[in-house]
Each structure stands twice: as C-alpha cells, then as structure tokens.
C-alpha cells in the first residue's frame, strides 16, 4: 500500500514548507462529506499522530491516517496547471465517479 507524490508536486510542497517556516510534511486524507460522498483532505502537518502511516517521496514525508488509506491506496498527488489556475491534483485509482468539479468523489 502506498501513496506517492510526483516530482513536481514534491518540489512545490517543499517550497511551501520552506516559506511557511514550520511543518514536518503533508497530510492526505478523506472524510465523508460533499456532494458525492467523500472529500479529500490536503493539509500541512505540524504534529504527527502515532497511528499515521508515513510514506516518503522525493524527500517529502506524506502522512495518511489508517482509516483513509484504503480509499487513497495507489494515489499519486500531482501538481498541475490548467489555464491560469494551478494546484495539486489527486490521481486516485479507487475513484468510481466524482462530482462535476472533482472536489468530492465516490469509491
């Protein structure tokens, strides 16, 4: 089981962490809400929770809580630019369908 970052995503995360001046890594998670059942969580991590699963890609620690992991397994977080907009993108193989905007999804 694993969750990874693309090289581009990792570069942006490390950049943000450096500018922010604190934080040990990135948290990916899911919670039940939104129009299609589940929603992603993407946060900085300041304090590690003991039961967190920790993955590392391109030098960035990625924390996932055990409840979220089944929904995220195999996900690669990428950084993309769409027109003027830019941000992180979840490439999640578990997703069956998602709402129109992609902010929430169903597995």
């Amino acid at each position: 089981m694993a969750v990874t970052l693309s090289e581009k995503a990792a570069k942006h995360v490390s950049n943000y962490l450096a500018k922010r001046g604190k934080g040990v890594g990135l948290r990916l998670g899911v919670r039940t809400s939104g129009c299609s059942g589940m929603a992603y969580k993407l946060e900085f991590v300041d304090e590690v929770v003991p039961e967190d699963m920790v993955f590392e890609s391109y030098g960035i620690k990625v924390f996932v809580d055990p409840k979220s992991l089944p929904y995220l397994d195999g996900t690669q977080l990428d950084y993309a630019r769409e027109g003027l907009n830019e941000g992180f993108k979840f490439n999640n193989p578990n997703v069956k369908d998602q709402c129109g905007c992609g902010e929430s999804f169903n597995v």
Partner: peptide, 17 residues
Amino acid sequence: MALFQIAEPGESAAPHE
C-alpha cells in the same frame, strides 16, 4: 478534476466551501 491547495492542519475546507 479539481485542483487543491494545501490547508493548515485541521482546516481543510469542506467541498465547495
């Protein structure tokens, strides 16, 4: 597919919020 920004710990916005 939506593009996400990183939130502060515990402050991920609910979808569309």
